[in-house]
Design a protein around this nucleic acid. Structure first.
Lengths: 183, 183
DNA sequence: CTATTATCGGAGCCGTGACTCCGCTTCAAA
DNA sequence: TTTGAAGCGGAGTCACGGCTCCGATAATAG
């Protein structure tokens, strides 16, 4: 017996509402707000995600999934070096202002421990492949690995997140991109 | 009529206790904890810092003051380029694990608005001078300014903050230092 | 169409944490 | 030393947020 249709719909509504609210008000936003935004009762939120932490995890997982997907897509469409740099820039630009992805990525970076979730594994795999190819093509220095790249993504998002001036963003981003070049 | 001696002493105890507790448990730590750590009653904490936010600001200001001081000291003792790079590395290393300075610096960076506090002005001045000299000596690229440097400090602290492996830290830091080189 | 049962909504419980209040203590001016 | 008042401590107040509970609702099997 498959789950009821409305349950599936509500779960999705809650998930995307949570993402939005967390972006706008930080992860301290109340569950009430999320329920309101999703147009459901609090009870519903807690049935699908029994704990606020589980809800957070779900939101993060979804964000990471999208990044992994984006990495895969870009890899197929551009030269390795290009792809890597553009992905880096895009991620930072997108999540910079929002500062939302940074938190999710931090989790992924920290989870070098035992049990990384499947989504994290997939993300690391996709990013790792992109990185390896860029390195083979000579576009990225050899002494950094995925862990360093994730750390740098977090750092760049944080560095650029609060700045409004576009040209300043570009200059700061360039420091990262140049720093990752060989030699 | 100067303030009572015990009042001055307690204020200092609270301030340093708050710094410690915020480092250990994040800025969400309860005021109770801080009072306990300082060995005073809650009432005392609130007399000296009527609001939690004011206490936070005071802690941040103190941190920034120390960084400014450090910048001044290093400037007098080393070649411009050396001084700048070493300061950058030191700040990141110190506050990296703690992730504490990053928050304070974020404030300083964000406060490009109207009223920056005197401490922030002083910090920006000290850092700015160091940067300008390093640039004149040809050690740092010319297209970045103090704002970029502060953003990069925040980013680097964040990037390195959670990593335990020392050599990984070094590799990540190198990306920042190389990225700031001319050309 | 109806019975069954998963799902929904949201009032309310409970713990936590910022902040207040006031009787007691301690400093320092005279 | 005395004494006025500045400072102290911490029990208590209030608001807020996570989470529970259960009567109402509505989706599906038959």
């Amino acid at each position: 017996m498959s789950p009821r249709a409305d349950a599936v719909r509500n779960r999705a509504k809650v998930l995307s509402a949570a993402d939005e609210v967390f972006v706008e008000h930080g992860t301290d936003a109340s569950t009430d707000q999320i329920a309101k935004r999703a147009g459901v009762g609090i009870g519903t939120v807690f049935r699908h995600f029994p704990t606020k932490e589980l809800l957070l995890e779900a939101v993060f997982a979804e964000r990471l999934r999208r990044v992994g997907e984006q990495a895969r897509t870009m890899a197929t469409r551009q030269a390795p070096d290009e792809a890597f740099r553009e992905l880096f820039g895009t991620l930072v630009a997108d999540s910079g202002a929002k500062q939302a992805l940074a938190e999710a990525l931090t989790e992924a970076g920290v989870d070098v421990r035992e049990s990384a979730s499947p989504v994290e594994d997939e993300l690391r795999a996709a990013l790792g492949e992109l990185l390896a190819r860029a390195q083979q093509a000579g576009g990225i220095r050899d002494d950094i690995g995925i862990d360093e790249v994730i750390a740098l993504l977090v750092g760049a998002s944080q560095a650029i997140g609060k700045t409004l001036d576009v040209s300043m963003r570009a200059r700061t981003l360039n420091v990262f991109l140049d720093g990752m070049r060989p030699h």
